[in-house]
Each structure stands twice: as structure tokens, then as C-alpha cells.
């Protein structure tokens, strides 16, 4: 296993992580489930490739266009579906994701179902890392503000949110648009990593995988999402050595977490310097207590 190979796995994990961060905001912090985020990745992927290939824009600005395109489409989707009660939004995202894939299958300008080859290889470990760090900082700062608290309130209790003056629709919308922008950027990075795009890369299976990662990592935890994306993207790769058994291992790992920790790996907790210090102190104080009581027994 060379360095290249490991960096490759991390790059893929980072690309997934970008979408997962957005989904974490939408699902983990605002309480809305989506089964169509692969659709936003597709829109971002194709839009970014359009900018670099046809307009010869540099990579990063092209990614921004990809994110923006996904965000705009999500705003339209949100406008029509977010006023509906609960589960309808979830169903609408599912239909949306499939619709995007079917449309791309049939648009010959981008190669239709055969795909779109010849996209420059701009994505590497380092720019993925940089973009993810910025994305995490933006997310953490947003969540620890009145806007983030309002989203959490919407997740907890919609009616009470309204009664304390929170515009529930607006905050669902903001959350959806930001999550779509993240997915769009991730799609752009993906196209420029694989050097080709194909509609079937953005299937319902992909959307589901992303949502599973968020749940696996723990709803309402950014660090959980990071761990989830790293573990669940690299696991299938590492298990490739066991070829036919890998899906079994993967499934078992997910089931194990779901049973032993139904709230997900991190469920509502964050790994921050201060929380780690607290954890360390707890362990140390337990240890010293144990030592003391052992001493008392003598």
C-alpha cells in the first residue's frame, strides 16, 4: 500500500465528507431528511466541469459556480416542498435526485448516459483538505450562532419555534440551500478527481449512502460526521482485499454501531479541545478514585 493509495482514499473520503457536512446541517441540526443529495452533487459536478472545460475558468472559482448552481436549484425545490408537512419533503428529495439523474442520462450535450470524459484532474488531497477545513469552520461558526440555534430549535419542536418567533420555513430553506451548495462543491471535486462524470455516479444509492454516513456519525455532531465519512469511505476500500466479503463487513459495521449506539457514533457530542480535556480529566479522576478505594481496602 503506497502513499498514493492512502492519499487517494482520503481524497475520496474528503469529497464525501463535503456533502456529508452539508447533510449534517440539514439532517443533524435542522431535522430534515434528504434522499436526493446526490442530485445536488450531480448539478455541481456538471456545472463545475462546464466552467473548467468550456469557459476555461480556474478550478476554485468553477467549484463556487458548481456550489451556486446546486444552491439555486435547491432554493426552487425548497420553495415548493418545504411548506409541506414533514415526510413529503423527504419523498420530494428522492424524486428530485432521480429526476436529475434521468435528465442527465438524456442530455447529449454532456454525453448522456455514456458520461462526460476528459475532465482535467484538478482535485488532489491538499485542495480537498483545505476546502473541507474551511467548510467545517463555516459550519461550526454557523451552528454556534443564533441562526444555528434557531435551526436546532426547528429540529426539536417546530410549533414552539414558531411561538418564539422563529421563521421555520426560512431556516429550513437556509439549511437546505447551504447543504446543497456543499454537495455541489463536492460534486465538482468528484468530477475533477475521477476525470469523468456519469449520471449513474449520482444514483439513489449514493444519496442513501450519504445519509447513512450522517446517521452513523451521529445526528447533531460535526465531528461525528467527519469520523463517519472517514470510516465509511475508507472501510470499503481497505476491505477491498477481502473482495466479496467487503460488503458484509461494511454492513456489519453499520449494524454494530446502530445497535450499540442508536444515536450514532458521536450522537450530539463534539470532539473539541475542551471536550477532550474534560474527558481526560474524567478518566484521570476515575483512575485516582479507583486507586484510592483500592488503597482503602488494605
Amino acid at each position: 500500500m503506497g502513499n498514493e493509495y492512502i492519499l487517494g482514499i482520503f481524497t475520496l473520503a474528503g469529497i464525501n465528507l463535503m456533502t456529508v457536512l452539508g447533510l449534517s446541517l440539514l439532517t443533524g441540526f435542522t431535522g430534515l431528511f434528504s434522499f436526493g443529495h446526490a442530485g445536488f452533487m450531480a448539478i455541481g459536478g456538471y456545472a463545475t466541469a462546464l466552467m473548467t472545460l468550456n469557459f476555461h475558468w480556474p478550478f476554485i472559482p468553477s467549484l463556487m459556480v458548481g456550489g451556486l448552481a446546486a444552491a439555486l436549484v435547491s432554493a426552487v425545490l425548497g420553495k415548493v416542498t418545504l411548506k409541506l408537512k414533514g415526510d413529503y419533503f423527504c419523498i420530494a428529495t428522492l424524486g428530485f435526485g432521480e429526476a436529475v439523474r434521468l435528465i442527465l442520462d438524456n442530455v447529449q450535450t454532456f454525453g448522456g448516459a455514456r458520461g462526460w470524459p476528459g475532465i482535467p484532474h484538478y482535485t488532489n488531497f491538499w485542495n480537498v483538505l483545505g476546502i473541507n477545513i474551511v467548510a467545517i469552520i463555516i459550519l461550526a461558526n454557523l451552528i454556534h450562532s443564533r441562526h444555528g440555534r434557531n435551526m436546532i430549535a426547528v429540529r426539536e419542536e417546530e410549533l414552539a419555534s414558531q411561538i418564539v418567533g422563529i421563521n421555520v420555513f426560512k431556516y429550513k430553506m437556509i439549511s437546505l440551500v447551504i447543504s446543497a451548495a456543499y454537495a455541489g462543491i463536492a460534486g465538482g471535486m468528484m468530477g475533477h478527481y475521477m476525470t469523468f462524470l456519469q449520471p449513474k455516479m449520482f444514483s439513489l444509492v449514493k444519496s442513501t449512502e450519504l445519509t447513512i454516513i450522517v446517521i452513523f456519525g451521529g445526528l447533531g455532531s460535526i465531528s461525528g460526521s467527519v469520523l463517519g465519512a472517514l470510516v465509511l469511505t475508507s472501510l470499503p476500500e481497505i476491505l477491498r482485499a477481502f473482495s466479496s466479503w467487503r460488503l458484509v463487513f461494511y454492513g456489519l459495521a453499520v449494524i454494530f454501531i446502530m445497535i450499540s449506539r442508536p444515536e450514532g457514533l458521536m450522537g450530539g457530542y463534539e470532539l473539541t479541545p475542551s471536550s477532550m480535556k474534560r474527558l481526560y480529566r474524567n478518566i484521570v479522576s476515575k483512575r485516582s478514585k479507583a486507586v484510592h478505594s483500592a488503597g482503602g481496602d488494605k
Partner: peptide
């Protein structure tokens, strides 16, 4: 109808959002 899983402090702090107007 409280924000059940949040702390007492977070419940009140969330509702205070009104008295600030900083943007995203």
C-alpha cells in the same frame, strides 16, 4: 412544549435570538 433535548440555558438563549440582528 420545550426544546426537550436542549439544556435549560439553551432553551432560553435560543428564544433570546430576537434581541440580536447579526446576519449569517
Amino acid at each position: 412544549r420545550l426544546f426537550k433535548k436542549l439544556t435549560v440555558y439553551e432553551n432560553v438563549l435560543t428564544a433570546c435570538h430576537y434581541n440580536a440582528n447579526y446576519s449569517i
